[in-house]
Amino acid sequence: FHVTIHVGDITFHIHGVSEEEVKKLEELVRRGADWREIKKTIEEIEK
């Protein structure tokens, strides 16, 4: 999957994300995680 996440003024683009990881990111966004937490999760996914 290709994912784009907008957190305030920050936009993250992630490529090659599995469905499971998409759900993890959706959950973070849904519970209102700040951009640092989302960035950390994205960095883990990209490894």
Rank of each mutant, 00 (worst) to 15 (best):
V17S: 03
E20G: 08
R36M: 12
T41E: 07
E20M: 13
F12K: 00
V3M: 13
I5P: 00
E44W: 07
E19T: 07
G32F: 09
E43L: 12
I38Q: 00
E37S: 07
W35L: 11
E19L: 13
I45S: 03
G16M: 11
E26I: 14
W35T: 04
V29D: 01
I45Y: 08
T4S: 07
R36S: 15
K47G: 10
D34E: 07
K47T: 10
G16Y: 13
H15R: 11
I14H: 01
V22M: 13
V7M: 11
T41G: 05
K39F: 14
I45T: 03
D9A: 13
V7H: 08
E44I: 06
I38L: 08
I42M: 06
D34P: 11
T41C: 09
K40G: 07
T11S: 05
D34R: 11
K24F: 10
T41R: 11
I38G: 00
E44H: 08
I10A: 09
K24Y: 09
L28T: 02
T4F: 10
E44R: 07
K39P: 00
I14A: 03
R30Q: 11
H2F: 12
G32D: 03
A33S: 06
A33R: 02
I5N: 00
I5S: 00
H6V: 13
D9F: 15
V3K: 03
E26F: 15
V3N: 02
V7Y: 15
E27F: 14
I42H: 01
G32W: 11
H13R: 06
I5L: 10
R36Y: 13
I42C: 03
V22Y: 14
F1T: 06
F12T: 01
L25Y: 02
R30L: 11
I14Q: 01
I14V: 12
V29Q: 06
R30N: 12
V29H: 03
H6K: 13
V17E: 02
W35R: 03
D34A: 08
G8L: 04
E21C: 09
H2N: 14
I45R: 03
H2W: 15
K47R: 12
H2R: 09
T11F: 07
A33T: 05
K47I: 09
E43H: 08
E37H: 03
A33C: 06
K39S: 09
I38R: 01
I5R: 00
I10D: 04
D34V: 02
E43R: 07
E44M: 09
D9W: 15
R36K: 11
H15S: 07
I14W: 05
T11N: 02
T41A: 13
E37N: 03
T41W: 15
I38H: 01
R31P: 01
F1A: 06
E46W: 14
V29Y: 12
W35F: 08
E37C: 06
L28I: 05
R31D: 05
T11P: 01
H13I: 11
T4P: 01
E21P: 01
I10T: 09
T4V: 10
F12L: 04
E27R: 10
L25N: 00
D9I: 10
S18K: 10
I45P: 01
F12P: 00
V7I: 12
F1D: 04
E27T: 12
E20K: 08
V29F: 15
E46Y: 14
S18T: 15
G16L: 12
E21N: 15
E27G: 09
K47P: 04
V3Q: 02
E37Y: 04
H13F: 11
E19D: 08
T41H: 12
F1I: 07
E37I: 08
K40W: 13
E26G: 08
H13Q: 06
G8C: 06
H13A: 03
S18A: 06
G32M: 06
E27Q: 11
E44T: 07
K24V: 13
E20W: 15
L28K: 02
H6Q: 13
E43Y: 09
H6P: 01
E46S: 12
E19I: 11
V17F: 15
I38D: 00
E37G: 01
K40T: 11
I38C: 02
D9V: 11
E19Y: 15
H6M: 13
V7E: 02
I38W: 07
V22W: 15
L28Q: 04
R36T: 11
D34F: 07
E26Y: 15
G8Q: 06
K39Q: 14
E43K: 08
H15G: 04
H6E: 08
V22H: 05
G16Q: 05
I45W: 15
G8P: 01
D34L: 05
K47Y: 10
V7A: 06
V7W: 12
K24Q: 12
I10W: 15
H15V: 09
G32S: 05
I14L: 14
K40M: 11
G32K: 06
F1N: 08
A33H: 02
E26S: 12
E27S: 12
D9Q: 14
I10R: 15
I10F: 15
E19V: 11
T4Y: 11
F1P: 04
W35D: 03
I5V: 07
R30A: 13
E26W: 15
T41Y: 15
E46C: 15
E26C: 13
G8A: 04
G8V: 02
T41N: 07
K23I: 12
E44N: 06
E21W: 15
E43F: 09
I14T: 02
F12S: 00
E44V: 06
R31W: 07
H15E: 06
E27P: 01
E27K: 10
R36C: 08
G16P: 04
I38E: 00
L28C: 02
V29W: 15
I14C: 03
G32P: 02
I42R: 01
T41S: 08
I5T: 00
K24P: 01
E26L: 15
I5K: 00
G8E: 03
A33N: 02
H15K: 08
G8M: 05
H6A: 08
F12Y: 14
G16E: 04
K39M: 14
V3T: 04
A33D: 02
L25V: 04
K23E: 09
E43M: 09
L25R: 00
I5C: 02
I38M: 04
K40N: 10
R30C: 04
F1H: 07
E44L: 09
K39L: 13
E27W: 13
T11R: 02
I42K: 01
H6R: 13
V7F: 12
R30E: 09
E19W: 15
D9Y: 15
H13T: 11
R31N: 09
K47A: 13
K39D: 03
H13K: 05
K40Q: 12
E20Y: 15
K40I: 08
W35E: 06
W35H: 04
E20Q: 11
G32C: 10
